[in-house]
């Protein structure tokens, strides 16, 4: 090999490793923050250790952030780092990479390993078999693999259609053009149930209103999501909603067109304070707490949790900067109550 070739090789290798290194440090390193100064002195119960793997960044204002925020709030409640420690790998969209991370965490003595992504299910099922003493959780999903003989997997699932329905009621009350646009990512999972619930909420409330739905076919194409939002406004929509981390593209358009956006998964008000009317917030903290207490009492799985409006796993959070009529809010509150009481089905 000539001198030039070696130099070439080094250049390429350098560029690649620099890129890789940057990618790596772009995400907060998956190491636990140092224990709080007072931790050692406190003779509290043993520290509970959670590891999480999620497909997008923990500040995605959507799916990954919802779980991160929940664990953080539980941590605060329990007394900080010393009581609950979290290690995480975020932005792991590729399943093989996620599987490797889940396996690593399982081998490192964590009490609970959360595979926060429906797509991780198959991998998790194999890994959980190899680590019967570690508790795992995955979602959004309803199958805890008990039927497959696994005793150490929890599943959690948001009944996203419930909040979707309530937001649909709000949209139906607020629309003037009687056209509402929905920017969906992939026609599956909680995205689909949210969209279906939202549609039902609109049409149950306002027979004259039309709901236009588009899907972009993936969870990350921001610019196609923006184009979808643009198309909805051209088609006359004056209220928009949508699901997944790629909706930032659509929220930008909503802001530009000065129309109202309804968010889901996380509170999206801070993306565009004058645009986001309300958000359905996934609050996993109740489920996280329940899993911790079950694990501490020796139960490592076989439970499928559901987040609902009733159990507080789902919340409708209003944004005060966007004016919503009392009439609309009252209708929404009524719908929330009916759903919680089981009088109303959110799905068609």
């Amino acid at each position: 090999m000539s001198k030039i070739n070696r130099r070439k090789f080094l250049t390429i290798a350098g560029t690649l490793s620099a890129g890789a290194a940057l990618t790596a440090c772009a995400t907060p390193a998956p190491t636990a923050a140092p224990a709080a100064p007072g931790a050692a002195a406190k003779p509290a119960a043993k520290q509970f250790k959670i590891a999480m793997v999620c497909p997008s960044l923990v500040n995605d204002a959507a799916f990954s952030q919802s779980m991160y925020d929940a664990i953080m709030s539980v941590q605060k409640e329990m007394g900080g780092e010393s009581a609950l420690m979290l290690k995480y790998s975020d932005n792991v969209f590729q399943v093989p990479n996620a599987a490797a991370a889940i396996r690593d965490y399982a081998g490192q003595g964590f009490d609970l390993v959360i595979a926060h992504g429906t797509q991780y299910g198959n991998s998790l099922q194999e890994i959980a078999k190899d680590f019967p003493n570690v508790a795992f959780a995955w979602g959004t999903a309803t199958d805890n693999f008990e039927s497959k003989g696994l005793k150490n997997v929890f599943a959690y699932n948001p009944k996203a259609e419930e909040g979707g329905y309530v937001l649909g009621v709000l949209a139906a009350k607020m629309t003037k053009s009687n056209v509402v646009g929905v920017c969906g990512p992939v026609e599956a999972g909680d995205a689909k149930t949210f969209v279906d619930g939202f549609k039902k909420g609109v049409t149950d409330t306002n027979k004259a209103a039309k709901v236009n739905v588009t899907y972009t076919g993936n969870f990350s194409d921001v610019s196609l999501m923006a184009a979808a939002a643009e198309t909805h406004t051209k088609a006359g929509a004056d209220i928009l909603t949508g699901s997944s981390q790629s909706v930032v593209g659509a929220i930008g358009i909503a802001k530009d067109k000065k129309i109202v956006w309804f968010g889901t998964q996380s509170n999206q008000a801070n993306l565009a304070p004058e645009t986001v009317g309300a958000s359905q917030v996934y609050d996993w903290s109740g489920i996280v707490k329940e899993m911790i207490s079950m694990i501490n009492s020796g139960k490592k799985g076989t439970v499928s949790f559901e987040s609902t409006l009733k159990n507080g796993g789902l919340k409708i959070v209003y944004n005060d900067k966007v004016a919503i009529s009392a009439d609309a809010k009252a209708a929404a509150a009524a719908a929330t109550k009916d759903i919680a009481d089981g009088k109303l089905k959110a799905l068609p």
Binding site: T15, L16, A21, T23, L57, K255, N270
Partner: peptide, 25 residues
């Protein structure tokens, strides 16, 4: 390599300097 560099650096800088997004006009 250039793609990965841009991808990594833009994410790093975004997390470091902006953190969360707010739409601009």
């Amino acid at each position: 390599g250039m793609h990965l560099f841009g991808l990594g650096l833009s994410s790093l800088l975004f997390t470091k300097f902006l953190g969360s997004t707010k739409a601009i006009t």
